[in-house]
Amino acid sequence: MRVGVITFPGTLDDVDAQRAVKYADGEAVPLWHGDHDLKGVDAVVVPGGFSYGDYLRCGAIARFAPVMQEVIEAANKGMPVLGICNGFQILAEAHLLPGALVRNHKLHFVCRDQWLSVENNTTAWTSRYDLEAEILVPLKSGEGGYQADEDTLKELEDNNRVVFRYVGENPNGSRNNIAGITNAKGNVVGLMPHPEHAIDALTGPTDDGLGMFLSLLDTVVKA
């Protein structure tokens, strides 16, 4: 399994994302924002951070990076793509996922270990989880409030496209406590919390996040 991990100027979590891929027995392939090809990878992780300094809007400039044109094309053909935090914002700006992420409702940057409920275990990235399993992974974002219009929310809810929901108090004002969603095919997933920081109890709150990368392994092996 070869998994591309994109680095934009301002990306922070590419190294941890690469480490998570290796923990799942994958080969992490660094991709640079200026690359025009995906080097034959089986899947792509768009990691967290502050691509292009979050200028204009989070993800708004990264979406137009050369490598993202390749990611968009590959995702539309079914390649598994995971966007974490800023990566989720980038996938939303790129219209691979609906809705948008806005400033947290209480304006504070939230940094804490966050319980999530697994709402959909049929995506390319969540098959290893039990349905409604609760997992604990770090959440660290200032603009994590998920917003979408009523029609989009209904579409997401009616078609089981909410992948993760916050458990307990809503940390950022996200509509319907949404922490992560998927596209209609289930190959593209975006979430604000950070599974790549929770792959080993030595360095994270749990190893609950590793399941996403092991799920990908299953997806790629089956493909």
Partner: peptide, 13 residues
Amino acid sequence: MPKPEILDPQGQA
């Protein structure tokens, strides 16, 4: 401008 139905916490602050 943020759409009217979108919460604008900065403006509220």
